[in-house]
Design a binder for these strands. Structure first.
Length: 547
RNA sequence: GCGAGUGUAGUGUAGCGGUAGCACAAAAGCUUCCCAAGCUUUUAACCCGGGUCCGAAUCCCGGCACUCGCACCA
């Protein structure tokens, strides 16, 4: 929003601010203050409600410290190091492994190795042909040390993995029926090289992620995508179309049905937290942009004062993660589907332990291992032994009505901090004539339900207002009490942090037992009975609509 | 991480060798019965660490942070 400095207001009013201020700060780390924390909590609550309304959705809450094997299987571990090298002349920076790869050599991810190859091959700066400097390592995940001789652990770079490694738990929870989805809200950590722009790029950040699991033969969500809300879709070919998620899917722009479905869900969510859909688009990732695991990815991007920013990524992860965790752990993370009954001949190989023992009493273990490795023959003391002799094939007829498959996964991942940034950007409003600033967020994410204000701090107005305040608190409303400064100044105070209602106790209140209730956006007031206050909070009595 | 620039009360700023002004905000009081009013009073700052100098917020060096470019962004 032009003319409003979001960061200035956020610092001043305790929405968010840079972390560790008294010690000079630490880049990429921000804290949410009293108002920001409440807004954030309510955004999370709305998101969860939205997701849970699907019925076949459950929640997961996992640890942030992560087993190293998980990250090795997920592919994060190999990208753990970024090898960079810089031109000593023009200071252009390159990825060392990219340069070596371009020279046509298979890359080993090792600092010294890369350094040696660059020297050996005489690789120079692509721009100015200057000499390249030292290969430097940038760690992209935060490491946690356990002890001296143990492997380090890592803080998770995304929340998703917990939803894959425990797949079987969820599969049982949903009584082995697909599709279903798991959601989680939590923190992730990435050691960004240059965190910048307030909440945009953080090193510790909040995510709201969902992993939905499908039988690849029936990759459809249980409901159809949104058909009413239309937004811009920007395809990987650069085509722009205005469509609802349903239309986008039917036209083949968005290939995946569930992906289109989650786009609609995202749109309803954005709308409920006050993000302007006129300043929102879905942008498809180009081929070279796709993550190591994804075949189709769409980002929801919002237009803010710092340009188009990604606030949600909806990625088709295929069966990448589960496949790798099956390989890496050796555990069964398969789902099963029911198929028509059929008889199949099952061939099983049995190792004839008795025969091995009688032929090779001493070195039977060698033979057995070779067979288990699937080898056909083995050299024993210069003689070639035919291993087939030691196995018996057995054929068995069995009835089968189930088969294994690895579910495919579609992941809508919402960046909470960026969503907060966008909400503030889209809702901080200025009155042109006076420069008056107010935050026009929906009631659902307003940090407090209302502020209770005595018109003046005397004549019993304050004690009456305080009684109302206390009783609203008892009824579990989140309210504030404020008797300091002129009434106008107090209205302004709560307008600026998005509190929708101000309840004012004036002289008439003392006689009639009523109060005025003021709406933030219209500044209109009406008089209502004190007992009616709870009924009015959350509604808009000025036009009969709810907020 | 590199290059350039910038760090002064909660916020926005002035001062640029003689230890800091202003505005808004906040607090106490007066005033005012409804949209950042006024008056009085008060609280409150030179990013951190070295160096030069009789004396440093000011000059120099290092760090940290921010802004803008470059690079990075699983």
């Amino acid at each position: 929003m032009k003319g409003v400095d979001q960061e200035e207001i956020s610092r001043r009013r305790g929405i968010y601010f840079p972390g560790f201020g008294i010690y000079g700060g630490l880049s990429g780390l921000f804290d949410y203050g009293p108002y920001g924390s409440r807004i954030k909590d309510r955004v999370i609550r709305l998101w969860k409600e939205m997701m849970f309304s699907e019925g076949n959705v459950a929640e997961f809450d996992g640890t942030t410290i992560t087993h190293t094997q998980v990250l090795k299987a997920s592919g994060h571990y190999d990208r753990f190091f970024d090898y960079s090298v810089e031109c000593t002349k023009c200071h252009t920076k390159y990825r060392a492994d990219d340069l070596v790869e371009k020279a046509g050599i298979p890359v080993t991810l090792n600092r010294q190795w890369l350094q040696d190859r660059i020297k050996e091959l005489g690789i120079l700066c692509e721009k100015c042909k200057g000499e390249l400097g030292e290969v430097k390592i940038q760690k992209l995940m935060f490491q946690v040390d356990q002890g001296e001789d143990t492997e380090p652990l890592f803080l998770r770079p995304e929340t998703a993995q917990g939803m894959f490694i425990n797949f079987k738990e969820y599969y049982r929870f949903f009584r082995e029926k697909m599709p279903f989805a798991m959601i989680t809200v939590g923190r992730g950590y990435r050691n960004e090289i240059s965190p910048r722009r307030a909440l945009y790029r953080l090193r510790e950040f909040n995510m709201m992620e969902c992993e939905s699991f499908f039988d690849p033969e029936n990759e459809k969500w249980i409901h159809d995508p949104e058909s009413q809300i239309r937004v811009t879709f920007l395809t990987r070919e650069g085509r722009e179309i205005k469509a609802s998620p349903l239309e986008a899917h039917e036209k083949g722009v968005v290939k995946s049905h569930p992906m289109a479905y989650f786009m609609g869900l995202a749109l309803r969510f954005y709308s409920s937290v006050g993000i302007d859909l006129e300043r929102l688009r879905f942008r498809q990732h180009k081929k070279e942009e796709l993550s190591h695991y994804s075949s189709e990815t769409w980002d929801a991007e919002a237009l803010t004062d710092i340009g188009w920013i990604e606030i949600t990524g909806i990625a088709h992860r295929g069966n990448y993660d589960l496949t790798n965790h099956i390989k890496s752990s050796g555990k069964d993370l398969y789902a099963q589907r029911v198929i028509p009954k059929k008889e199949v001949v099952q061939k099983t190989k049995e190792i004839d332990y008795q025969k091995i023992k009688s032929d090779y009493a001493e070195s039977s273990a060698k033979i057995i291992n070779a067979i288990k490795e699937g080898r056909k023959e083995l050299d024993m003391d210069g003689k070639t032994v035919d291993l087939a002799v030691y196995t018996n094939e057995r054929e068995e007829k069995v009835t089968v009505d189930r088969e294994n498959f690895i579910p495919t996964v579609i992941e809508p991942a919402f960046g909470l901090d960026r969503i907060m940034y966008t909400i503030l950007d889209h809702n901080l409003s200025v009155r042109e004539e006076s420069g008056y600033v107010w935050l026009k967020i929906p009631y659902g994410i307003s940090p407090y339900d209302a502020a209770v204000l005595p018109l003046m701090n005397k004549d019993d107005l304050d004690s009456r207002a305080n009684t109302i305040f206390e009783s609203l608190l008892k009824m579990k409303f989140s309210v504030l009490y404020d008797d300091s400064g002129s009434i106008g100044k107090r209205y302004s105070r709560y307008d600026e942090v998005g509190v929708l209602y101000c309840i004012t106790v004036d002289y008439d209140s003392l006689e009639k037992g009523d109060v005025t209730i003021r709406h933030r956006d219209t500044r209109e007031q009406i008089r209502i009975k004190i007992d009616d206050i709870p009924r009015y909070l959350g509604t808009n009595p000025w036009n009969g609509k709810t907020n």
